[in-house]
Design a protein around this nucleic acid. Structure first.
Lengths: 191, 191
DNA sequence: GTCTATACACCGATAGAC
DNA sequence: GTCTATCGGTGTATAGAC
């Protein structure tokens, strides 16, 4: 049995989750300390106790955390299962990460705007690694390296495109239906 | 010959274009009046002369204007040319609208965040109309209505996804290559 | 139409009591 | 660890001269 996580860590995790919802909905500049305090139930001063660096430290921690969350989806590509199974599991995990299209990808939200200057370059490298991990699976499905790399980029673009257009169209099902089709497409591209 | 546009209107057009660049790069909350004044070369007080409603009026005008710009891409779907030709022209026009992936779609940028509450619903209706216009062309290519509707949503998602992932990957060519492939895909889906 | 000067609210951040 | 009170700076918006 796994060891019980310390309550300190558990409290910090819910604190971070509450903070993330504000940045997700309002972006970096739109997320004021008053909003953050209200969302967490703490005062502004208490937030500075947990994050002495203020807003900059909060967002740095949140980016780290969101990248780790997203990483958990790409971990589904590891293991000895067939590549199409792993790719479909990844797509499902990504869907979970963005709450089936109801939420956002915090990494993507924060990388648009003033935060990109500070965290944009390392995040871009991370996304390249993720694209390579996807490409490896497409190669295992029979595609040549160049084509696999292309298919990996297309899959990423489709996922984020479905997420964004679902919000533009205000259609909660747009993302869900798109995910379903994407998974069928992975099945087919095996031939 | 078309009548020469009045200098007043021309000045206002460049003014709006300058303001748009700031909102595109910084989002609604990130675009302060100081930034907007600097970008236009006017003082803050002068901005209030042109837009008495302040920042809210500026962004309302900009949304109207950006929607009209984007509409110009969808106008390429009209006419008597073959549907695949019209769809490819639309894709090129969209690419031009976002400066080949180097810029953003101002509509999409503003609809994420606090502005969505005010302008989100009418914009969503507009996007539905645009999706329908695309679906009509896919029907003309031989797809049944349901499938054409799906293909239209996929095309929109791919365009916005390529735009977003190109920025996440910091790869200026990602969008350009994706556009090329999308156009080839339209060719193929004809058969 | 454009400007400088300014009003007033809110922002991020700190001090210090409990 | 949490709070109230408060600081200096900046944000939006206005007054009024030119």
């Amino acid at each position: 049995m796994a060891p019980k996580p310390s309550p300190v860590t558990a409290k910090r995790r819910t604190l971070i989750a509450d903070l993330a919802t504000v940045f997700q909905a309002r972006g970096y500049e739109g997320a004021t300390l008053a909003h953050l305090a209200a969302a967490t139930g703490l005062s502004k001063a208490s937030l500075y106790h947990h994050f002495p660096g203020g807003k900059a430290e909060i967002v740095a921690v949140l980016v780290r955390d969101a990248v780790a969350d997203l990483q958990r989806a790409f971990v589904r590509l590891q293991g000895t299962d067939p590549p199409d199974v792993k790719l479909k599991r990844f797509v499902d995990a990504f869907s979970d990460y963005v709450d089936a299209g109801r939420g956002h990808c915090l990494v993507a939200v924060l990388m648009q705007g003033s935060i990109a200057e500070q965290h944009g370059a390392p995040t871009a490298k991370q996304f390249e690694d993720w694209r390579d991990a996807l490409a490896t699976q497409f190669e295992a499905l029979g595609s040549k390296p160049k084509r696999a790399h292309r298919e990996a980029g297309e899959l990423l673009a489709s996922l984020y495109g479905l997420l964004l257009t679902g919000k533009l169209l205000r259609d909660p099902d747009h993302f869900r239906r798109g995910i379903k089709r994407l998974k069928r497409g992975i099945q087919k591209s095996k031939h």
